[in-house]
Design a binder for these strands. Structure first.
Length: 287
DNA sequence: AAGAGGCCCTGATAGC
DNA sequence: TGCTATCAGGGCCTCT
């Protein structure tokens, strides 16, 4: 579900609410995630103080004051709900495609503070919570990830080197977290639209001008999405709480058979599957 | 050894 | 108030 912008919104709202708070109690109702939650997890987290909440790529970390971490990934369907007793028992929704109310099922993880608790809901359980002892281990854990689009490491030289002698198409490159981290299936299509690059284009055929556009629009699209509060798709109905607005800006995603939105372009948006993932693009202006 | 494909899991929706 | 198939914003593992 969530790509970098959505995870950033979750991180921001969490950081605002739980920084400096002490974990009083942890409740695990289901331990079977992508990574199994070990029995000692609750004990390890209890009494920890949140120094701050951070994010790298699509991962959130609760940074504890003793130098340890809780690494969080939302997978495809994970949402975090924040319950604040000081605010007249109202839920503050830090998630993206659920209603303001807590879902009835799949509330697997609950972390309680004084007056505040967070509940992790994840129907498909592709996400995970993982305790990490120290910074060194965290770095090792995330070592396989490439730079974020915002990083100065994500530059023309890096792209040229990465594309050298590669036979993959550009769409698969953009969603490959080893190459650049944080871009998922939706934003990959959106970014390539702005670049006017066909998602099937083999990277070997791209030139320096294309590299520049890839860097520029990767940053631009993700930044805009963050500014708009991320994208909320699915469960459009009965969403009354906070939800993102970037889905209204989509140029190609979910727009199969509709008119291309580029000025004076007469193309239609096509949907094609690339390695099992839907990909959207204009058949005229993306070459 | 890069790259394609299967798989983890549940829920929503489309089509019959 | 049916079934059944397909698809979903991710990432890891296996096979070739």
């Amino acid at each position: 579900m969530p790509e970098l912008p959505e995870v950033e919104i979750v991180k921001q709202s969490l950081d605002k609410k739980i920084t400096n708070k002490i974990i009083k109690k942890v409740i695990i109702r289901n331990r079977n995630f992508r990574i199994k939650i070990p029995p000692k997890f609750e004990e390890l987290l209890t009494n920890k103080v949140i120094k701050k909440v951070s994010r790298f790529s699509k991962y959130v970390t609760l940074n504890f004051s003793d130098g340890s971490y809780c690494l969080i990934h939302l997978g495809m369907s994970g949402t975090i709900h924040l319950f604040d007793r000081t605010k007249k028992n109202k839920f503050t929704n830090t998630s993206f495609y659920s209603s303001q109310n807590l879902p009835k099922k799949h509330n697997h993880i609950e972390i309680q503070f004084d007056n505040i608790k967070i509940i992790y809901n994840d129907p498909r359980r592709f996400g995970f919570f993982q305790y990490i002892e120290n910074q060194k281990k965290l770095e090792k854990r995330l070592h396989h990830l490439g730079p974020e689009p915002f990083s100065k490491l994500f530059n023309l030289k890096y792209i040229r080197k990465s594309f050298l002698n590669k036979k993959k198409n550009i769409k698969n490159f953009l969603i490959d977290q080893k190459f650049v981290s944080g871009i998922g299936n939706i934003y990959a299509s959106e970014i390539l639209f702005f670049c006017k690059i066909n998602p099937f284009q083999k990277v070997i055929n791209l030139n320096k001008d294309d590299y520049k556009k890839i860097v520029f629009f990767s940053r631009e699209v993700l930044n805009k999405a963050i500014k708009k509060g991320g994208s909320s798709i699915r469960n459009f109905k009965n969403v009354s709480g906070k939800q993102g607005n970037y889905q209204k800006e989509f140029k190609v995603y979910f727009r199969e058979n509709l008119q291309c939105l580029r000025n004076r372009c007469i193309g239609k948006i096509k949907k094609k599957v690339i390695t099992n993932r839907s990909t959207f693009f204009c058949n005229k202006c993306q070459k």
